[in-house]
Amino acid sequence: MAKDPLAEAGFYFDELNKLRVLEPDVSQKTSELKEECKEFVDKIGQFQKIVGGLIELVDELAKEAETEKMKAIGARNLLKSVAKQREAQQQQLQALIAEKKIQLERYRVEYEALSKVESEQNEFIDQFILQK
């Protein structure tokens, strides 16, 4: 095929018969590349979004794990201190019991003294009746 003088001068016509300075092949490839690039950027963006979501999720998870851990530690400590608390409570109750016991002993002594007075008075009454 004879060479197109226009082509030699670097001018081409495209399908729409417009005058162009770029070879149609190259132009086509370029646009193809452009498309691909765009696609690639899109995909990367999507990937980033997905990964971001993942990271967020993992972070959240970590946070939750952390709080759970703290809770567990707290609970463990609490458990440990409950024993101590019980001990203190027991001590308190023991002291109160001791106090009540002392009071009971006082009442017992008082009761005994009163019983003695009663028996003395009964004795006196008996004696009095017998002598009359």
């Binding site: 002392i102 009442y107 002594v109 008082e110 003294a113 007075v117 003395e120």
Partner: peptide, 14 residues
């Protein structure tokens, strides 16, 4: 009242 706080009673002939 005794030293330990308990009350005691004692009767005296009338």
């Amino acid at each position: 009242r005794q030293g330990d706080g308990s009350l005691v009673y004692s009767s005296v002939p009338p």
